[in-house]
Write a protein that binds this DNA or RNA. Sequence first.
DNA 1: GCCCGCCTCCATCAATAGTTGGAGGCGGAA
DNA 2: TTCCGCCTCCAACTATTGATGGAGGCGGGC
Lengths: 217, 217
Amino acid sequence: MVAQEPIRVLVVEDHHVVRQGLVALLNVVEGIEVVGEAADGMEAIAQFRRHQPNVTLIDLRLPRMGGVDVIQRIRMETPHARFIVLTTYDGDEDIYRALQAGARAYLLKGMTTDELIATIRAVHSGKSHIPPVIAQRLAERMGTEELTPREFDVLEQIVHGKSNKEIAGELDISEATVKTHINSLLGKLGVTDRTQAATAAIQRGIVPLESLRKPTS
Amino acid sequence: MVAQEPIRVLVVEDHHVVRQGLVALLNVVEGIEVVGEAADGMEAIAQFRRHQPNVTLIDLRLPRMGGVDVIQRIRMETPHARFIVLTTYDGDEDIYRALQAGARAYLLKGMTTDELIATIRAVHSGKSHIPPVIAQRLAERMGTEELTPREFDVLEQIVHGKSNKEIAGELDISEATVKTHINSLLGKLGVTDRTQAATAAIQRGIVPLESLRKPTS
DNA sequence: GCCCGCCTCCATCAATAGTTGGAGGCGGAA
DNA sequence: TTCCGCCTCCAACTATTGATGGAGGCGGGC
């Protein structure tokens, strides 16, 4: 193989062990050089500016600014920046938004090292790579109508266990309006009651599970 | 430091990258030797039998038999076996059951390498180690009453979006009985309606999120 | 300007869901 | 045996939820 500039990679991942593992794996690979690491969103942006990597490997779940926002922010400054999203399981919503934001590839953490390396090379040379599992979910999602902002607000409250009356109070609208929104979002989500709406929202990542911990705010 | 037998460690983790990272990290540490790796529950048991490790590092979410079951099975054969549970986030229920099953330590994947090593050494020398965050959740959980098996069945159906009538059909009991169980489990979970019960069940890991994917079985 | 989607609200109705206060059977522990 | 927890069921009631078919205002795109 001809001697070439190595692919400069930035690794953004908040779990120490996973991050160190990734770096260790990648640094022994010929033609790949890890030029930076970040454990949260802010740090990721700083590191990107400093190192201008060819490819950024990024987890979507990050402290201080989620992965999707990081991708968007960086792409505003550097439109040609290339991202590989690296995540464990995650709801469909995040996948969708990450790709919208400009990620070129999506990898589940269960992949092999070879797949990871092949994907880095592919993305660096301008290709995209979406695993079949993910592609299928995206396809399923496509038929789905978008929720309006207000419907989203209501759905969020439903997931947090609020009654219609409470939601009305919270959003400062009448209970009738809440019902209207619910009726509409039930249809869009393809479910028949609020409980199904709540689990669907969690499962699809529309409302993050973390927000359930201590929600009383 | 005096030359000693190294601590023999088995790593059980289904994500290739994470597992390889862990192994790479641990193998450079003085006094620790990774004697085996497993990517699922069955393999874990086989590897344990073969290598008889001093400490087993185990993820709770595994294909083909969950981590908790693995711990229980191994401890039946080898009661003195020592486990460190290693997991990302996970509901309280799993933590609780893992400790019940005999795990000596619980580590979140966000920990540092130093913490990991320190914990391995501690557990090997017979100590336990539960992070404060986890300990606190366990404490909160303690006041909680256990659900009866039947209540659990009903809760599961609720999470899957079934109506009372459907649940009655599914469990082959009357709708009245379903209501009785629901009334009881709402109290035990400290919630006021089925939607809250569903999100609580998911959030606490009582009903696994994965079971929501394509549940129609 | 006109249309369309979104947000807001209304009334009315039917269907679920949740509450209360029972009751009987069954099996294990004391 | 007696007690207790669990499972089963009931009636009767209230509260909540979801369905339906409106209606007006507001703002952006054509």
